[in-house]
Simulated scan of single mutants.
Amino acid sequence: MPDPQSGTSATTPPSNFNIANALTVLRIAGVPVFGWLLLIDGGADVSTRVWSFVAFSLLMITDRIDGDLARSRGLVTDFGKLADPIADKALTGMAFIGLAIIFDHWLFWAVAITTLVREWGITIMRLFIAKYGVMPASQGGRIKTTMQAGALALYCLPLEIWDTTASDITMWVAHVLLAVAYVITMVTGVQYVIDARRLRAEWFAAQDA
């Protein structure tokens, strides 16, 4: 039976070759380009730091666009479900590591490493738990992603090089965004683990019923 929204058969899965997945692949391919722009001359080149901000912002925007396209046009695929979080984590991971190298401060390194351990750990856990049921992203997780992206984008700008009042204020905005994002990251990480344990327990209970 045709799907009135997508115009395709409701029983026929969408092809992996679609615009939503193409944007996801583009985001993955853009990660090394972004990293190169960010780390040219150890992050001391003003123009390439600005371009790294542009690249990071555009690549993060594709995350929102590909998700909206996949849902609105019935283009959700198994490939997209796997590749989309990998693309996100690769991009933010490159940003965290690159910025930690540039700022070279123990606190930024600590935030970067613990955040990435949480991000990749939860992503891997969700892949393993998928056989027991779907564990969707929480509202807290979406807020975390938005604030994290905003903070990382601001850090990409050469604020410490410009050294103006405006850049100092912007840097503090980035600090606050990252601090709040970090707290939400850790809290939602714990919640995801609790949800995964409950989902697994409910699946086994259903099998025994």
Rank of each mutant, 00 (worst) to 15 (best):
G150E: 08
Y192E: 01
L91C: 02
W109G: 12
G189T: 02
M147V: 03
L39R: 11
T123L: 10
T92M: 07
D41F: 04
S47L: 14
A22M: 09
I169H: 06
W106A: 15
V31L: 03
F128Y: 10
A112P: 09
M147S: 09
Y192P: 07
V54E: 00
T185A: 15
I102K: 15
H105F: 03
M1V: 12
G74I: 00
R73M: 08
A10G: 03
V187M: 10
K131A: 02
L99R: 11
H175W: 11
E119L: 07
V173K: 03
G133K: 00
K81G: 00
A149M: 13
S72E: 13
Q5M: 10
K81S: 00
P13G: 12
A205N: 06
T11C: 08
R198W: 10
T146K: 04
D88C: 08
W109L: 10
I143P: 02
L58K: 00
A166D: 07
H175P: 12
V187A: 13
A149S: 15
G189Q: 03
I97P: 06
Y182R: 01
I65S: 01
V187H: 05
M1H: 04
D45W: 05
W109I: 14
R198V: 11
P2C: 04
I28G: 02
L69N: 09
A55M: 14
I169Q: 07
P136S: 09
A181L: 10
A151V: 05
L152D: 11
D84E: 07
L159A: 01
L39C: 07
A196P: 02
H105D: 13
S138L: 03
A153E: 04
I169R: 13
D168V: 08
M94L: 11
I169S: 05
